[in-house]
Amino acid sequence: MSGEPGVTDAAGVPGVADAAGVPTMFDVARRAGVSHQTVSRVLNDLPGVAASTRERVRAAIAELNYTPSPTARAMAGRRSGSIGLIQAGRPDYGPSSAALGFNEAARAAGYAVSQASMRALDADALTQAVHRLVLQRVEAIVLISGEREGVGVLRGIDAGVPLVVVASESSPGLHRVSFDQFAGARLATEHLVSLGHRRIVHVSGPADSMDAAERARGFAAVLAEHGLEQRSPIAGDWLPASGHAAGRRIIDDGWATAAFVGNDHMSLGVLRACAEAGVSVPDALSVVGFDDLPESAYFTPPLTTMRQDFDSLGRDIMATVLDVLRDEASAPDRAARVPELVVRASTAAPAP
């Protein structure tokens, strides 16, 4: 992508600053101590910015001699009645359900949704998707991707429209929506501790997943508070096959009486490994999952898990978009919704 403000790339869309140090909207935002969305609102003379903030942004623009792209200003200043949605990563149950909830909430609010999807996160493809949506004059762009890299890429794009991300980790400069994965993991682990388990192992999601990191952090925090031994998590990739491999490791090791598994798909693999080895669940090993898939109540045995209301998450995303469009400066993040513990037959007190 070309990078100079005031110069567009081949697609006619403003890029980010080049290595020569030409100032961008993000430089203005840092100088003024505001978000880049606030800079965009000031440039386009939109409401929702305090007078003192507006003056501070204008002063930063003057100090840096920043020249915004005429294309971006023209696009940002025109209402289209549409929101851009980018889904990056495997079409798993959670992200897909959240996207459906968001689409329904957007329609109810009178907005159309322009959507772009990619099975694997790619920085160039994500940047191009943002630029294509900007060309369609969307009023805001939403990213649903659990991977840290996607949030980093979005933060570096001078899009000229508000950006909202589904991210369980802090995302400075972006508006954030998420479940509290840390709190959910704490509830799952506390459930096992309350049953009397003292040797608990964690099967984690992939290393680049924000949700996986927060769940591992919540698990470790509870064990530390109770003075329990912590063993390194067994890394999975969200898929049942990795859960099956983790289950075999847990059985072969013979140490744990309980497992907190990072999602229900991997829990299914753990349960399969136990069935093959003749290990009774929950008598010999208690298993807790995460997500509450529609099928989880019908696993053998039915799975104790953490329920995430993905429809509500989709509505939270759209509510945040509307808040940002009304008043970007005061729009709150929505990241405090805590998953709900659903107790089924896969957990019990450890055998004597």
Rank of each mutant, 00 (worst) to 15 (best):
H131G: 10
L135E: 07
Q128A: 14
R132D: 15
G146I: 05
R137A: 12
R137F: 11
I141C: 02
A116M: 12
H131T: 00
A123S: 15
A140Q: 09
E139T: 11
A105H: 05
V130A: 06
A116W: 04
T127K: 08
V138D: 12
V130L: 08
A125H: 07
A105M: 05
Q128P: 02
H131N: 10
L126K: 09
G146A: 06
T127Y: 09
H131A: 08
L143R: 01
M118Y: 04
S114W: 09
L135H: 01
I144H: 01
D122L: 00
V113T: 14
V142H: 06
E139R: 05
A108E: 12
S114A: 11
V113C: 06
G146S: 08
H131R: 10
A125I: 03
S145Y: 02
N103I: 13
A108K: 06
F102K: 01
R107H: 15
E104A: 15
A106S: 08
M118P: 01
E139P: 09
A129Y: 03
R107A: 15
G146N: 11
F102T: 05
A123P: 08
L135Y: 00
Y111W: 10
G110E: 00
L126A: 11
A129S: 13
A123M: 08
A112F: 07
A120N: 12
V130T: 07
Q128I: 12
T127C: 07
L143C: 05
V138A: 11
A105V: 04
A129T: 02
A129M: 04
G146T: 07
R107F: 14
A106K: 04
E104T: 14
V142T: 10
L135V: 00
V134G: 00
V130N: 04
Q136N: 09
L121V: 07
A112K: 04
A140F: 11
A106D: 10
A108I: 01
L133H: 05
V134I: 12
S145M: 00
R137P: 13
Q128L: 13
R132K: 07
F102S: 04
R132S: 13
A125V: 06
A116C: 10
A108C: 02
R137T: 13
S114F: 13
A109V: 01
A116S: 13
F102H: 03
A116N: 09
L135F: 00
L143A: 06
